[in-house]
Structure formats: C-alpha cells, structure tokens
Write a protein that binds this DNA or RNA. Structure first.
Length: 569
DNA sequence: GCCGTTTTCGGCCCGACTGTTTTCAGTCG
C-alpha cells in the first residue's frame, strides 16, 4: 500500500460521508487527513513500524485505527460499506462544476440517477430543471461539465503516470534477465496528461516480466497477454502496456514507442528518402545491414541531424531544426536557481519559513521567495497588512543569518474583481517579489478578465503574473481571457509570466509559454508549493518549458541572485 | 474526527456569487 492509495481511500470516504449529509467537520477531518497522508515524506508502512502514525498532525485515534486496518487488509470496511450504499457514479456527479453533495444527493434520491450517463439522459429529457435547487441554466452547465469529464476520461495527470512508472520500473529492473527497462510514449515526452503508460524492457525471456506485472499489487486485471507483451489495468485507473524485446531491439523500440506518431512517421519518411529503413528493429541500409545503435542519438545521427530530446518529438518543426543544427539548448532542471512562489503556515500552507529554507538549500537553490496569499483570500488565511509586514521583518532577520542563500520577501496579491490589487502600491513597492494572481470572479466576461490582468501587468510593482489562465486540469476550464493581448502587454512592460509547475495547473501551458517567448516575454517557473513534497514539482514546470522550446535565457529563476534582483527591480 | 499554555467539550479559516422558490441554500475558492 502506497501512501497515495491510503489517502485516496480517505478522500473518497470524505466524499461519501458528505453525500450522506454527515457532519461537515468530520468530513473535513478526513479530507485533511487524506491530504496529509498523500504528502508524507515516509511510507506509512514504515511509520507504522516505528509506531509514529498517531504522531502525524491531524491523525487521531480513530483515523490511526483506520490506517492500520488499511495497511493490514488493503481496504477499509467503512469505506466499502458506504460504496454499497452510494454508487461510485454519484461521486463523479458530485465533481461536476456547480454540483456539490446536496445536489448530487437530490439527483440520486429523487431521480435515482447513479452515473453521468443517466444524468445526461435526464437533462436531455428536461427532468432535472424542475428539481429543487436546479434550473434550466444549470442543465446546460451540467452538460458542459459532463463533456469536460468525458474529455479527460481515462487520462491521468503526468505526475501520477510518472509515479506509477517509476515504481513499476524499479520493480521490473531487478527481475532476473532484465538488462534495461524504460517508460516510453507520452509519459516520456512529458505530456501534461497521459492515457496509457507504455513500458519497454530488454530481456532474454519475456515470461517472468509479464507474470510479474500481471501479479503486481497495482494490477487490477489483465486485459491482454501475448508472447512478448502484456496490457493490464491498474488500481490507479491507468492501463499499463509492457513490451519485452531482445536487448539489441531495445533502443529502436524505445525510440519508436516514445513517438509521437507524427514525429516517428516523419523520421521514417526521411529515412526512406535516404535509402534507409527505420523501424522497431533498428535502421537498415540499402545492403540490408543494421547500423549499430548505442543510443537514440545514433538514430538521429544516422539520419543526418542532431539528437532530438523526447519533449520536442511532436512534429512541430523539430526535425527541420535538428537538420539545420538549430535546436534550442533546452532548459534543464539543474539550471533552476530558486523558487519564487511558495506558501507558508502564515497563510494556508503546511511549511513554516525554516522548513522552506532548509528544503530549498538541500535542493541546491540560491534563493526562494515567500509569497503567501493576500488579505482578501480569507479562506486561505490571507495576510492582512500588519501580518504581512511582520512576516517581512522576520524574513529580513532570518536572511541576515543565512549564508549563500537569500530568502526574498513577497506576496501573491489577488487581482480583485474590480481590477485593483489587494494592497496599495506603497506596500507592494517595499517587497522583493510581487506575484499578482486571479482567485475570484472567474466567470467575468473575456473583456473584464482581460482588463483586470492587463491592469495588473501595467502596475510597475507587479513582477510576475501567477497561473494566468486559471485552469485546473480535469476540474476547471481556463477563464475566458485574451492571452495573446496579455502577452503583448507583458512584453511591453517587461512583466514576467509564471509557468506554474503544479501538475494539475501547468499554467501557462506549453502553447502559451512558447508564444510568450516568441512575443519577447520572460518566464519564471514556480511550484506554488503548499507543502514540502510539492517543492519537488519544479520538474513539471521545467518540462512545460522544454516542450515550449525554452532555454535557460528565457527563464528568470535561472539567474544568480544579483542578476535576479536587477530584473525584479 | 481532531484538538487543547484560556477549553477533555465545544470549538473547528470566511465571504462572494448564483439562481431564484425574492430570502437563502448550495457551491466555490
């Protein structure tokens, strides 16, 4: 049992209890526990062995007992029992925008609606609008919500896919006879969501590997099995395809399976035009001899071009650029010198200032900015003026004692619905980093939201615009905003745009990040972390940047502190 | 269900928006 799986049980338990109308505080206690468990540093199994589960904040006697039950039996009786009462489809209905526990319950109890299909039918038959708490407009919203969920269906966040991939790879790598194993497909190309996880392994005998995956604890059922490949569906809601090849076919298979299909097709075409044959066996010349391949770079070299990293393999001009020797030197995680969007216990995060400093130093960063929420964001315990200034005083004091590390003062100031910022200019002026973000009024018109963000961009004290389109993958569409106009304005004012690295945001996305660069805008990759583990998500923002063809020069948090201060000034 | 340098019971981050049964429950961040 992984922590994340235990956390999922508690999160679902919270949802189920909420649907039953259970006390809100009890629901919240489970939800908090789920979040805490998901972000623990150590495996629960280990903590249990050391008798430390009850010591975790937010975990009391009752939840501790339940965790132990899960660790021993693999499930939770109370959770299973609730699932008997409430069909899982009702949980999905509750996740529709505009539908919460109360409305989902009305739909279930009064119309017997158990899943999205039944809901869609009821809406089309106009049976929903007359229910208490519903309306004709809401029927429209429901259909849109169902569309959104259908679009996402079967796809998971890249971070989930990578976590599962890592676990399976480590498991397969140590099996007898395995020489190599790698993740391929869209996961290796770092696409923001993943439909299936594709693995390729090199081994002399496939059978032990196929059996190992078939019986792995993550595997729910085997979908298909052939002599050298197996497809399974996992408990994580992601299917996994493992192909086992002979060692000499590993590199060409890894390369082909990584795709993308259009990229690979283009290479095959190019190979053919040179009298070569490129396929999963390798590259064959006109004499029918296979060229020797040490790595993927040899494939590209044989075709007369530079090596193309997986993130660029989308047939968006990378082949032509590689032929001309003009691929950009992509940004690397190691280029990142600091994180400029971090929350602490002063607002709604689990980390205190000392935690942040320690972890950022461990990561080898030279600086970090503390940017807690501003006063209007009450639910996140946003800082009023007094607390903000107090925090900044403390940060400046801490800074004096730090060596080779700079803790910057800052704030994530709300761009309010009336386009003003949450603090006056005189206050913003005094801090190192001002991020301005929208956290309210998402449903304003395109014109209004664009104007709001434009005003923030124009404010000379605003350094960075945070998560500019506001999307949350699979949960919330971006707000209606004229991104192109904002890029133009940001270029004019020298305002920096954030690539929010949180795997469910990735905002700006790769398309806009690329356009930003082309418009002459500088970017900053931030985690927006609310707990220690999520400071590690920088890599996902770097992946967006790489897929957007960005180099070190395009990203300001690759600068050393003195240069960074210059840019922020 | 969790928690306690005021409380082992009684608190638990708040407020805006929405649609509308025009007075507030439900949802959201």
């Amino acid at each position: 049992m992984q922590n994340i799986e235990v956390a999922w049980i508690f999160a679902e338990l919270a949802d189920l209890l909420e649907l039953k109308g259970e006390d809100f505080f009890k629901v919240r206690a489970y939800r908090r526990a789920a979040k805490t468990l998901a972000n623990l540093e150590l495996p629960l199994v280990e903590l249990n062995r050391r008798g430390l589960i009850g010591k975790i904040p937010g975990i009391g006697k009752a939840i501790e007992t339940k965790i132990k039950e899960i660790l021993v039996t693999g499930q939770l009786a109370k959770h299973q029992q609730l699932l008997q009462e409430i069909p899982p489809g009702v949980l999905e209905i509750k996740r529709l925008p505009g539908i919460g526990p109360a409305r989902a319950r009305v739909l279930f109890e009064q119309l017997g609606i158990k899943d999205l299909d039944e809901l869609e039918r009821a809406v089309k038959e106009r049976r929903v609008r007359n229910l208490k708490g519903f309306s004709a407009k809401m029927e429209w919203d429901i259909l849109n919500g169902i569309q959104m969920i259908r679009r996402r269906h079967g796809r998971v966040l890249l971070s989930v896919a990578r976590e599962l991939a890592q676990e399976l790879i480590e498991y397969i790598r140590i099996l007898p006879g395995v020489s190599q194993v790698e993740v391929t497909g869209s996961t290796r190309r770092w696409r923001e969501t993943v439909g299936d996880l594709d693995l390729v392994a090199a081994a002399t005998d496939p059978e032990p590997l196929l059996t190992a995956l078939a019986t792995h604890p993550r595997t729910k059922e085997v979908i298909e099995k052939q002599a050298n490949r197996i497809r399974v569906f996992t408990w994580w809601g992601l299917s996994v395809d493992l192909q086992v090849v002979a060692p000499e076919e590993f590199i060409p298979t890894l390369h082909r399976n990584t795709g993308s299909k259009p990229h690979y097709a283009k290479l095959q075409e190019l190979a053919a035009s040179q009298g070569l044959v490129l396929d999963h066996h390798g590259i064959k010349n006109e004499a029918g001899e296979f060229l020797k391949l040490q790595g993927e770079a040899d494939i590209y070299r044989s075709l007369g071009m530079d090596y193309i990293p997986p993130e660029l393999r989308e047939n968006r001009g990378e082949v032509e650029a590689a032929q001309r020797g003009q691929l950009p030197g992509l940004l690397e995680l190691a280029d990142i010198r600091g994180d400029l969007h971090i929350h602490t216990t002063w607002s709604d995060s689990a980390m205190d200032l000392a935690d942040v400093v320690q972890r950022c130093q461990e990561k080898g960063y030279a600086y970090a900015a503390i940017t807690d929420h501003s006063r209007s964001l009450k639910i996140a315990n946003g800082l009023d003026l007094d607390r903000l200034l107090e925090q900044h005083t403390i940060i400046r004091e801490m800074n004096k004692k730090l060596e080779d590390f700079t803790l910057l003062t800052g704030v994530e100031a709300d761009i309010l619905p009336d386009a003003s910022l949450d603090y006056p200019d005189e206050v913003l002026e005094q801090m190192d980093v001002v991020i301005a973000s929208v956290h309210s009024g998402f449903k304003q018109s395109r014109q209004e939201i664009t104007r709001r963000i434009t005003r923030a961009i124009e404010n000379e004290h605003v350094d960075i615009i945070g998560h500019m389109t506001g999307r949350v993958l699979g949960r919330r569409e971006p707000y209606d905003v004229d991104v192109e106009a904002l890029l133009e304005m940001a270029a004019k004012t020298g305002t920096i745009l954030e690539i929010n690295a949180s795997p469910d945001r990735l905002d700006l996305n790769e398309e806009y990040a690329k356009k930003a660069k082309e418009a002459g805008v500088k970017l900053c990759i931030n985690t927006d972390a609310h707990d220690l583990r999520r400071l590690d998500e920088m890599i996902y923002g770097v992946a967006v940047a790489r897929r957007a063809w960005l180099t070190k020069d395009d990203v300001i948090n690759t600068l050393e502190i003195a240069e960074l201060r210059e840019v922020l000034r």
